[in-house]
Computed example of a mutant assay.
Amino acid sequence: MNPAPPPSSSSSSVLDLAPVIPVVVLEDAADAVPLARALVAGGLPAIEVTLRTEAAPEAIRAIAQAVPEAVVGAGTVLGPQDVQTAVAAGARFLVSPGWTDTLLEAMRASGLPFLPGVSTVSEVVALLERGVTELKFFPAEAAGGTGYLKSLASPLPRARFCPTGGVTAANAPGYLALPNVACVGGTWMLPADALAAKDWERVRALAAEAAATGGR
């Protein structure tokens, strides 16, 4: 992840906590703590809670307070207001689907690690110019998948990616085998029926399978 300057080293990066970052969409903040505990128990401590629902800020706050072993972050960060909301809720990292200079400035100013989204070579080069080396590749499958990322490894060796968007249990190993992929983001360990049933043991088991992905 990219903190406020200077950039963090990979040894302290959120990207290195686990091979998979669960991407969580919560409609009910009451589910946040048991869900986070299940993911952590399964070996996935970095948890991205997307700011797509009204419950998201309270969910982040609840996880930050009640599950200290989790590293909870805010996803779908689209502007300075979202950055402020995430910081106030206790998020420990920020993820955006894309980036602008305004958003980048706000994320840097937060002091939190951040992961801006890219889908083109020019975006990657522009961020490298700005000292940002850890990026979200989104939407991964639609933007070219493993073949696209593999082609970036040689010309852009400083860039490290977390592909998200269309990543599944089946294709995650292919992404994780690439030298420029640090981890992937996904939702396959969070099936809708398990969440609806509050089947946290099933979530834990699926998280454990995901944590073993790629042999990391």
Results as ranks from 00 to 15, higher is better:
52 R>W: 08
207 A>F: 12
114 F>R: 00
211 A>Q: 02
186 G>H: 07
86 A>G: 11
181 V>P: 01
3 P>I: 00
41 A>Y: 09
13 S>K: 07
43 G>T: 06
22 P>D: 12
199 D>Y: 10
213 T>N: 03
129 E>I: 07
26 L>D: 14
63 I>L: 04
66 A>S: 14
173 P>C: 03
55 A>S: 09
112 L>Y: 07
49 V>M: 09
96 S>M: 12
105 E>V: 11
103 L>W: 09
133 T>P: 00
93 F>G: 13
111 G>M: 04
70 A>M: 07
39 L>C: 14
210 A>I: 07
7 P>S: 14
177 A>D: 09
185 G>Q: 04
37 R>K: 14
50 T>Y: 05
203 V>R: 01
23 V>E: 13
53 T>N: 10
170 A>T: 15
67 V>K: 06
50 T>C: 12
197 A>M: 08
71 V>N: 04
3 P>E: 03
155 P>M: 05
183 C>Y: 08
168 T>E: 05
167 V>R: 07
39 L>N: 05
133 T>R: 10
79 G>K: 04
33 V>G: 04
200 W>T: 00
179 P>E: 00
92 R>H: 13
215 G>V: 03
154 S>D: 02
78 L>V: 11
98 G>N: 13
5 P>E: 00
147 G>Q: 06
213 T>C: 10
81 Q>W: 09
122 S>C: 04
16 D>F: 05
109 A>M: 11
13 S>P: 06
49 V>D: 05
15 L>P: 04
104 L>D: 12
96 S>E: 10
149 L>Q: 05
153 A>C: 02
55 A>H: 06
34 P>Y: 08
167 V>C: 12
180 N>P: 03
41 A>M: 11
52 R>Y: 09
175 Y>K: 03
110 S>T: 13
165 G>L: 15
26 L>Y: 14
27 E>L: 15
190 L>R: 00
101 D>N: 14
199 D>K: 06
180 N>H: 02
123 E>T: 13
121 V>C: 06
187 T>I: 15
147 G>L: 05
193 D>Q: 13
43 G>W: 13
186 G>Q: 10
32 A>S: 04
101 D>W: 03
185 G>F: 03
45 P>G: 01
66 A>H: 14
136 K>G: 14
175 Y>D: 00
79 G>I: 08
12 S>A: 15
104 L>T: 14
161 F>I: 06
79 G>Y: 01
116 P>H: 04
188 W>M: 13
24 V>C: 03
7 P>H: 13
89 A>T: 15
31 D>N: 02
148 Y>V: 06
184 V>W: 02
206 L>G: 12
33 V>H: 02
202 R>M: 07
19 P>L: 03
83 V>L: 08
16 D>P: 00
212 A>G: 00
185 G>M: 04
99 W>G: 11
85 T>N: 00
132 V>C: 13
164 T>D: 08
180 N>G: 01
150 K>P: 03
200 W>E: 05
75 G>S: 14
212 A>K: 05
205 A>E: 15
33 V>P: 10
84 Q>Y: 00
11 S>V: 15
169 A>E: 14
175 Y>R: 04
79 G>P: 09
155 P>A: 02
174 G>D: 11
200 W>N: 05
93 F>N: 08
120 T>I: 15
16 D>A: 15
93 F>E: 08
40 V>G: 09
2 N>K: 09
186 G>K: 06
148 Y>S: 03
135 L>K: 05
76 T>I: 10
77 V>P: 10
155 P>E: 02
15 L>Y: 02
43 G>I: 08
137 F>M: 04
32 A>W: 07
157 P>C: 01
